[in-house]
């Protein structure tokens, strides 16, 4: 459990360092995730423990973004002014993404509709 947690933190640190040194606008933890994905076959001894720790963390994923979400109170004025474009933007982009993805993927797989 501790080895797995230390592994996650090590890849997070690696990602932060890579983001900082490269100057890419990609978040450090995402680079850390990509690095862990690539390094996975090299860490067979840790797989079982990484599954346990990752499942525990991800099962409570929602909790982790509550503190930042509460920060929305700092932007109450902006939201009161611009709620309409934000709402339309969220609804339209969610619908467009979903419709395009479903249509394109079934096309590309040459799939006859299956149930």
């Amino acid at each position: 459990m501790l080895e797995a947690l230390a592994t996650l933190l090590a890849f997070q640190l690696l990602g932060e360092a890579a983001a900082h040194l490269s100057g890419w606008p990609i978040p450090g933890p995402v680079l850390g995730m990509a690095a862990l994905f690539v390094a996975w076959p090299a860490l067979p001894r840790l797989h079982a423990r990484l599954h346990t720790v990752a499942d525990t963390l991800l099962a409570n994923f929602g909790l982790l973004f509550v503190p930042a979400g509460v920060g929305v109170m700092l932007h109450a004025g902006l939201i009161a002014l611009w709620w309409a474009p934000l709402l339309v933007g969220v609804v339209a982009s969610t619908a467009v993404t979903m419709a395009l993805a479903a249509w394109l993927f079934s096309r590309l797989r040459g799939a006859t509709p299956r149930d």
């Binding site: 947690l5 996650l8 933190l9 890849f11 997070q12 990602g15 932060e16 978040p27 450090g28 933890p29 995402v30 850390g32 995730m33 990509a34 862990l36 994905f37 996975w40 990484l50 599954h51 720790v53 990752a54 499942d55 963390l57 991800l58 994923f61 909790l63 982790l64 973004f65 509550v66 503190p67 930042a68 509460v70 920060g71």
Partner: peptide, 24 residues
């Protein structure tokens, strides 16, 4: 508020790294 909540907030980055596991 954030002085207390930051301990939860910190784990966000770690959980993001952990997304590699279900993807694998």
């Amino acid at each position: 508020y954030f002085d207390g909540a930051q301990f939860v907030h910190f784990l966000l980055g770690t959980a993001t790294v952990a997304l590699a596991v279900p993807l694998r």
